[in-house]
Each structure stands twice: as C-alpha cells, then as structure tokens.
Amino acid sequence: MTRSFQYLRPDFPREACEMKAKHGGKAVFWAGGTDLMLQWRRGAVDIDYCIDLSGLDELRQIRSGEDATVIGALATIASLQAHESLGSDFPVLLDMAERFATPQIRNVATVGGNLCHGVPSADCAPPLISLDAEVRILSPEGERTLSLESFFVGPKQTALADDEMLAEISVRRLPPRSVCTFERMARSYVDIALASAACRLTIDEESRISEARIVMGAVAPVPLRSTGAEELLVGIPLVDITEGLLAEVGARAASDTRPISDVRTTAAYRKHLSGVLVKRAVAEAVRRLGE
C-alpha cells in the first residue's frame, strides 16, 4: 500500500548522509527512482522519509582526468552516452548503456542507483568491475574507498552502512593494449538481463595476455568474477587462443555460477547461458585485440 512520506532535499552530500543517519532505516535516498518507484508501489519498501538526491549537482558530473575517470553516483545512464570522452576511453560503457532499458529510463536512471540497488543483474556492475572500478563512499563522519567488486554483499545488499552514501565511481585509465567487452541477454528488448558477462583483456608487447577480468551478472547472489576462468587466459599468446580454449573458459566461468530459477528463467539455463556469454565476450575481446 502506498502511504505518504516526508520529502527532504539536501544541498550537499554530507547533509544527505546526516539526514539518513538521523532518520534511520525508514529513510531512503531517491536518485532516479526507477527501481524505488516499483518497489514502493509494490509495498516492498516502506518510506517515511524520502531524501531526494537531485540537488547534489556535484555528484552528477563525469570527470576525465589524466589517470582516472570519475563518474558521479548521480550521473544518468544517458549522460554516459552523452559524455565527450567516456565513450572513447571506455567503449564498453557505451555498449552497456545502449542496451540498458529505454531512452526514457536512461534519462533518469543513475549509475549509483543501479549499483546501490544491489541486484545481481545490474548492468553497470560487470563492465565496471572488469575495469577494476573503485567506489568512494561518504558518511556523516567521513569517507572511504572500496573496490566495486567488494561493494556487493548479497542480493539487494551492499557494503553501505545505513548512514552511508555512494558518491563516486572511479575507473583507472586502462593499460595500453586493453579491450573490454560486454554481452547480455534478456527476454525482450526492454528487460532485466537473464545473464550478462563482461571481459577485459590486456596484452603485453608480445601479444600475450597479461591481465584478464571475467565478470558475470545475474548468475549468483552478487555480480560474480571468475578468477578461475581468468587464470586460464593469463600468459596465453593471442594467437594460441583456440575455439577449444574459449569453450574451456566459458565452461569454467559457468561452473562458478550459482544461479537461481525464477519467473524469468531456470537456473540450468542461466548457467549454460553465462558460459556462452563469457565465451563470446572473450572471443570478441581477442578479436579486437588482434585487429
């Protein structure tokens, strides 16, 4: 049942955290509201205090620096697409954004909201984790930094304490000769991913894979990295990557998954699909590195 609530609009990030600290569990941060609105309508969250983050302009920015790009938690998915250099620095984020919801939703949905909602299917997570993204977290007392990989704790659970807020996501400039790819499948054009996979590969000067990241979405309680699959790739020269190895990497990644069966699909399908998507993401990265 929908009930009325108190509406609060902080002007500064810290103020937002203070409001949250003051009002406790029944206060929520409202970013784009595209997840919250559905939950609220369904009665899945109780809201006594709604802390509207839309006044925190500084957290809406995307800043590209020498070493890193910093994406404000309130940057919308559409703003990733509109940014002048993000797309050329991290084309995978454009690939992801293009497949994210609809233009209308992308105009309001924020990157921070996507991550803080904490669902394993969140599309921003696999590419950003594969880019070794870090998150800056604010609280009334101060701030801390965490790897995005460790930000996810369980389904709809993140490392954020009750009075903490996600401020920024920062992504280091990639080493040279790096490529990052993203694969995703859903039931129809606008849909939550049934499974997704991101892959980043970096090669050294001898065209040997020096670093690999493989991250899957929607197949475990949290976005899932498969170090086992990554290890199969590290040290292998590009030219030696065979169809057989790709299949092995996919199978290894799939074996790490712990998917559920739900109304969207079965666990068996998700497991199988994650292997296929990982294989494709890796194959595409290898293809692009070979170009």
Partner: peptide, 24 residues
C-alpha cells in the same frame, strides 16, 4: 507463470510478462 501450489500468477505486470516491444 502460475505458482505450482497455488496457481497464483507470478508475473502480473510488464516487468516479468514480456510482450514484444517495437524493436523485437
């Protein structure tokens, strides 16, 4: 999708009842 024990509809809305969109 019907819940096996109750027949309750598990996807009573566009979130999980997938109609084709124009690009499909």
């Amino acid at each position: 999708a019907f819940e096996p024990d109750t027949g309750r509809i598990l996807n009573p809305g566009f979130l999980d009842y997938k109609v084709m969109r124009a690009p499909d």
